[in-house]
Amino acid sequence: MIEAKGICKAFGALQVLKGIDLKIETGEVTCLIGASGSGKSTFLRCLNGLDPADSGELSVEGMPMLGKGVDIDRIRQRIGMVFQHFNLFNNMTVLQNITIGPIKLRGKSPDEARAEAIALLKLVGLADRTEAMPRMLSGGQKQRVAIARALAMAPEVMLFDEPTSALDPEMVREVLDVIRDVATRGMTMVIVTHEMGFAREIADRVAFMHQGKVHEVGTPEQIFSNPREERTREFLSKVL
């Protein structure tokens, strides 16, 4: 479970997050929607400390993530992240991208890590590309490897930061299929997305963000069919 209370974050004079309260239950898929600049990605990046929150309370599985004495590197091992621009390590093969974390951080033997990596590559449909370098892959393939890399750490939570926004349209489907597959295995996930159809289908809960605040949280059914807030209605009328 992730619990965020009063999360605030500013970049210089720009106040991006203005007190966010959100609870993400274990096994739940939460989609963050909202206009560009509403703070969705920044909030997601607060959840693993890539952009540390300025104030507020944040805990993952009951462990506080903010304040002194927090071993953020250790906590991050339990939180996988998938980026908009994939960010595969360009100096490593597909296999090395996936195995480096388990080998160096989780003490797996190279053989064990390799076997697990190949199983994950099968899951994302790329078992034949173990020795490929990232530059040889299409965007969709890169993103699927990135998902496998995050899963290889056996995280308790997966964060997705607009995972299909940088993809060519014909590759969106293959990545969404993989994410859906991971979701059905009961992984706790937080997904920032502009794919409203996908959010509606996959999410257990949808949170609508506007100007640095969560304006409305609810089931996909409620948010998309029967939004309570004027802002939510306005946003949905523009994107649906």
């Binding site: 693993n48 890539l50 590197d73 250790r74 991050r76 091992q77 939180i79 996988g80 992240m81 980026f83 621009h85 994939f86 960010n87 595969l88 390590f89 360009n90 100096n91 480096i100 974390g101 160096k104 951080l105 990135a146 890399r149 995050a150 750490m153």
Partner: peptide, 30 residues
Amino acid sequence: IDKGQYEACRSIGFSHWATMRLVICPQAFR
């Protein structure tokens, strides 16, 4: 080197120095 390389390595749980050694410096050297 693209900042995303650094962030991806940190997001897995590697420290700043491990990230420099494993991901950033090998690419910077090229």
